[in-house]
Design a protein around this nucleic acid. Structure first.
Lengths: 203, 203
DNA sequence: GTCTATATTGCGATAGAC
DNA sequence: GTCTATCGCAATATAGAC
């Protein structure tokens, strides 16, 4: 059930993106074939190149689109009137949820393996994925500093540090395909990190 | 200049390991060929199989050997009579040094890309690399708890959390081949993490 | 489907230790 | 001379490329 944009062009574009997601995540970047994407999306190769320019830009567009979808729960965790502590907990769990999903791991593995040869892809991934999450949190922290709820000079660094704490080695373990952590483990991870963060920085 | 073990067998074994390091890091696991390793090491293929059994075990042995070498600075950071704070700082910087080295990143990329098909390799990497570092730190933290310098129930979790804080997103950025962090950035990262950790857990 | 590349094994030859 | 480790090469098997 493809999400339909409004105009026919948007529909077309979305269909191609969704076919691309399947193919790139299944084959990796170099082994994915544009022909295969066209086969699944229907339509002509010409249209793909008209919309996206080339294979690399197509993959970049897919990364952006997937990242935006996957990170949207983070917005939901922030956009409400909960306490700092509750917000950080919800945000942390939402972040780990995203990070440990199989499709997010598949992109990560692809970009790690092939990012050396295609630095623009690596940049696009980092900017729209992990770094976008950091930016959202640091914006929220900025608000809290303005509020007077937090005392903190470098909110961007603090956001990176917070995500680092809750990630601990969970992401690496997942990326390597090792045993996934239990929900309990995740909850403990987030709870101790939040407690530490709040004690350290709240006024 | 190969490091020579004492017995001829050890020399042989080391020579093969070192040739293997080159080849596996250059080509990745699947694309590395045993023939190429034999060519560089000299000697016969039969000997390689006699010592290591098969290609996968050879790579596992290489991972173990490299990890042991690369993690040895962590031992040096711990084995002295510095204060908790100083030890954590030295340990953190040594850890980041190892993690961000090009050869360590190359292994990581290889294991991430191919670990899905070879789960034993992924386990070996994790156990001897990142997890071995955690174990060293948690042993040190255990001592400090026994000392009465720290109050802390789960030292293993705390060690993972500490490394997570100082890693923040530096390792991911490096693995993706993005701009490396400056020494200043690393120092600030470690310093704020140590301060936070010590404030949180020291008695 | 063919064909190449390459992991893995088998075996007689050789070289050095004792 | 014997013994053992290793060598060199040849053979098998199989997976992936084309």
């Amino acid at each position: 059930m493809p999400k339909t944009g409004r105009t026919p062009e948007e529909v077309r574009r979305n269909t191609i993106l969704q076919a691309g997601v399947q193919v790139f995540l299944e084959y990796g970047y170099v082994n994915a074939s544009v022909d295969e994407i066209v086969r699944r999306a229907g339509g002509s190769k010409r249209t793909v190149y008209k919309y996206f320019g080339n294979k690399e830009e197509l993959f970049a567009a897919i990364i952006e689109s997937l990242a935006a979808q996957m990170l949207s729960p983070l917005g939901a965790a922030i956009d409400d009137n909960s306490s700092l502590q509750t917000t950080l907990e919800k945000l942390g769990k939402a972040y780990l949820d995203v990070l440990l999903r199989e499709d997010s791991l598949a992109i990560f593995r692809t970009v790690v393996s092939e990012g050396q040869c295609f630095p623009e892809l690596a940049k696009t991934f980092f900017r729209n994925g992990p770094n976008a999450a950091v930016v959202r949190l640091s914006n929220y922290l900025d608000q809290q500093v303005d509020n007077g709820s937090l005392q903190l000079s470098d909110t961007h660094a603090a956001a990176r540090q917070y995500f680092g704490m809750i990630r601990s080695d969970l992401h690496m373990r997942a990326a390597l395909g090792l045993e996934p952590p239990t929900d309990d483990e995740i909850n403990r991870e987030v709870d101790t990190a939040v407690a530490m963060f709040v004690r350290e920085y709240s006024v």
